[in-house]
Simulated scan of single mutants.
Amino acid sequence: MAASDNVVRAGLTPKFKDVDTLVAMLTYSCAPIEAQKMRPAEYPYATLNRAAYSSGSAVVLYDPPIEEFSVVRTLLRGDGAKATFEPLAGPSIVICTAGRGKIAVGPTARDVRAGYVFFVGATAELVLTSEGGEDDEFITFRAFCEVEDHSNGVQH
């Protein structure tokens, strides 16, 4: 949920709780599970190197029907697989959930392992490179804000 002063609380806090208002605000819509699942889509703003492409590495986008953020999952297989991401107009956060590798944001490079989290500033190029054996998988998730460029109406 995006930060806001307009919060209606129903528990888990010592602050004022307004359960009746919260329940009145909820919308219930039923649908089969398959209809509610988010489908990943190809993320066209990343380029895989030859090692990544030939190893079956992938970069996919999870774009929920909300404006606050989207998530890109990167799976790099084997040593030396690399994904280069075009700069985004807004900030992002990268978390590594498996494997190890390197992250480069502009001229700065750092080691990455599962549990590491990095902030990537707006307009910075991001490069992820896997390290490890042939069967190792380097998995990261990047949450980012889509920022609209009002000068030309383009979203990034």
Rank of each mutant, 00 (worst) to 15 (best):
V154M: 10
R39K: 15
S130C: 03
A143Q: 12
R39F: 07
G121F: 00
E137H: 11
V72H: 02
D79S: 13
V23F: 01
P65T: 14
A10E: 02
S29W: 04
A24V: 00
Q36L: 13
V8T: 12
T74P: 05
T84M: 04
S54L: 09
P40Q: 02
A51M: 07
S55Q: 10
T47N: 01
H156W: 12
T47Q: 13
G90R: 13
S70V: 08
Y62G: 05
S130P: 05
A3C: 04
S55N: 06
D136T: 09
D5L: 07
A83V: 07
R142Y: 01
S29M: 14
R50H: 06
F119K: 02
I93M: 12
K102Y: 11
A24G: 15
A3W: 02
A124G: 01
S92D: 11
F119E: 04
L128E: 14
E131A: 08
T97H: 13
R50W: 01
G80H: 03
T84P: 00
V23G: 04
G133T: 02
D136F: 09
R77K: 14
V112A: 06
K82S: 08
E68V: 03
I95Y: 08
G11D: 05
R77Q: 07
R50Y: 01
F118N: 14
I139H: 07
G115E: 11
F141N: 07
Y45F: 10
F119H: 09
E86S: 11
T21V: 15
A51N: 08
G78D: 09
L75M: 14
R39P: 00
V117D: 02
I103P: 02
E146Q: 10
V60P: 00
S54D: 13
G101V: 08
S4G: 01
T140L: 05
M1F: 03
L88C: 08
T108V: 15
K17Y: 01
A31H: 04
A24P: 04
T47D: 09
E134M: 04
A10C: 10
M1Q: 02
R39V: 14
A41M: 10
L126P: 00
N6T: 04
V8H: 09
S70N: 06
